[in-house]
Write a protein that binds this DNA or RNA. Structure first.
Lengths: 130, 130
DNA sequence: TAAAAAATGATAACAATTATTAATTTATAT
DNA sequence: ATATAAATTAATAATTGTTATCATTTTTTA
């Protein structure tokens, strides 16, 4: 990764935020300071920075949304290699909402817990890197 | 919500799955049984069924992916009204990965914990229903 | 300072999802 | 049972979010 002024701008602009903006928000804001920056450049650098662990992308799995028939509260395991999603039938940790409420100014209705890792099917033969 | 054969098919087809498919997977599978069903119908009914709590949509927030500058492990609070995302600076629950490992056949590398609810800004004036 | 590698801006292409609309199906009230 | 109203459908256009392409410019290397 070579230096680029635009990448630095993207990282700096994201750093101003405490509200987890989307790519187009960063783009709109940057256009005011740098009227020639391209939307593709913003997407490209957000992706690069996230892949290099400099920033973080928040998403459930990349690509399309998933659906499940089981509406009983339960947790999930996502394979970061193949993208498969598995149910985790462990006991829900009721105390988490209570513990979180100390840090949140708002009404908590519940939580989602997603474990990440590599599933048995993928094992160590993984080439994916979303 | 009136009865419809197609909606029943969508719900039944999702019920066969234990791997949390996307809309187009359900569509492809249904086309074999019902060659005239439309992709829009599948999307429409998955959305309706999820809104009515019959099935569940798995996503972080609807719409575009979000980004954050803070790469230190921490949790999040999502307002289901306005979609805003807040950091939750509570202590990470290390024991969760250990507890989950009993139920997962694969290598766990970590977890994401997302609290849901209504933020103070939205309070009870919420009209959103993704 | 010239050559090689990487990044950019502009835009086309692609992917995921929703909106539109005329026709059909389902429910309701005779 | 039957006419009417309401809901749903298939087909497809439109929208949104994101990535790919490519000629040009910038950064690094020699």
């Amino acid at each position: 990764m070579n230096y680029s002024r635009q990448r630095e701008e993207v990282q700096e602009q994201l750093g101003f935020h405490h509200d987890h903006p989307s790519a187009d928000v960063i783009y709109s804001e940057l256009r005011e300071k740098d009227p020639t920056i391209s939307l593709a450049t913003v997407y490209r650098n957000l992706k690069l920075l996230a892949q290099n662990g400099v920033i973080r992308r928040l998403t459930f799995v990349s690509g399309a949304d998933r659906f499940e028939p089981n509406i009983n509260p339960h947790y999930h395991f996502v394979c970061d290699c193949c993208g498969k999603v598995f149910d985790v039938p462990m006991q829900a940790a009721e105390t988490l909402d209570e513990a979180a409420s100390k840090y949140i100014s708002g009404k908590i209705t519940g939580h989602d817990l997603v474990f990440h890792g590599i599933c048995d099917g993928c094992n160590d033969s993984c080439e994916y890197s979303a």
